[in-house]
């Protein structure tokens, strides 16, 4: 069994998106309950968030944008750049705690205390652009994590896998010209779903050409199509790229019971996806992998999905995984 870190911090519940917003604090409570009910809490290395040093955020975001975000919260503004990004006075501080918590997971992994980690943070990050909040996201958590690994721990090649149902436009744009970070995303086809990027022909620019790979999935598809595309696109890409560490943008919103999108992935399908990614980390990255939560809005399904996700990280026998219903 592996030593798996679990970033859990009640302060992530404070980020308030107002009434009628799907990205709510109950999501994290559902995730926690799922881990607890599966009897996995005692097997995990728990740790809390810490406020990130701003220099790491500035690796990815424009300082003027960071200041604008902080000022908006202090001024009591309820949204940032788009009505999708609803927030409260504390959102800026919570976002810094989220990034800091993820870097804490990476530090512990690099120092050998843990093998991998699950970081269910709020707010999520993969839509955040260099100077723009978008799609419930303010700071691009996973992008900052990749830069931290490269700068602080001299990691050469970082592989990012994003299986949130929406394309991670922010992450792609931040690394599209960079051959040291491979961005792979599988998501609902952008002609049907937010944010309208992540088409098959987007494969990076300049020196980064060939280091971005997108697998858009047509609406109504499920496990079979995800399996086919991951085998066709992700596995050979990482065989060539050989990531030294894998970072995962984990989203559970492609689930058949999630109303956010039109996909039909089952709980078993998510198990297969995560087992496959962990397998890639074992093959190329000495098992080093950090999973960062993005979307997933079905409060009924999140407990079992997160429970299984963490069990796979731990390398517990797969027979113990829960299935639908």
């Amino acid at each position: 069994m592996k030593k798996t870190g679990f970033l859990f911090d009640e302060r992530y519940l404070i980020h308030d998106t107002g009434p009628y917003h799907p990205e709510v604090s109950d999501r994290l409570l559902a995730a926690y309950q799922g881990i607890k009910k599966a009897g996995l809490l005692e097997k995990l290395v728990l740790f809390k968030g810490v406020r990130v040093d701003l220099k790491w955020v500035e690796e990815v975001h424009d300082p003027a944008y960071i200041a604008r975000f902080g000022d908006a919260c202090v001024a009591g503004k309820k949204e940032m750049d788009t009505p999708d990004c609803q927030m409260c006075a504390e959102t800026y501080e919570i976002a810094l705690l989220a990034v800091g918590g993820i870097l804490e997971a990476l530090r512990r992994m690099m120092e050998g205390e843990i093998d991998n980690a699950f970081c269910p943070v709020r707010p999520p990050g993969h839509h955040a652009e260099r100077s723009r909040a978008m799609g419930f996201c303010y700071f691009n958590n996973i992008a900052i994590a990749a830069r931290y690994l490269q700068k602080e721990w001299r990691i050469g090649r970082v592989g990012i896998v994003d299986f949130d149902v929406h394309h991670g436009n922010g992450t792609q744009h931040l690394f599209e010209d960079d051959p040291t970070v491979f961005y792979y995303s599988i998501h609902e086809h952008p002609s049907f779903a937010f944010p309208g990027t992540g088409r098959e022909f987007e494969e990076g620019v300049g020196a980064g050409t060939g280091y971005t790979k997108n697998s858009p999935v047509l609406p109504g598809q499920g496990d079979d199509e995800y399996r086919r595309l991951i085998k066709r696109d992700l596995i050979p890409a990482f065989e060539t790229f050989r990531p030294e560490i894998i970072l995962v943008s984990t989203g559970f919103d492609a689930h058949e019971d999630d109303e956010m999108a039109d996909m039909r992935v089952t709980t078993e399908g998510f198990n297969w996806i995560m087992e496959t990614i962990v397998g890639l980390a074992d093959t190329y990255a000495g098992g080093r992998l950090v999973s960062i939560l993005e979307g997933g809005y079905s409060l009924q399904r999140l407990p079992e999905l997160v429970g299984n996700h963490v069990r796979i990280l731990l390398g517990d026998p797969p027979g113990a995984l829960q299935n639908n219903g």
Binding site: H21, P22, H166, P195, M260
Partner: peptide
């Protein structure tokens, strides 16, 4: 629609 959040509007 210029949003990510289509659950409620669809309903």
């Amino acid at each position: 629609l210029l949003t990510n959040n289509v659950i409620r509007v669809k309903k």
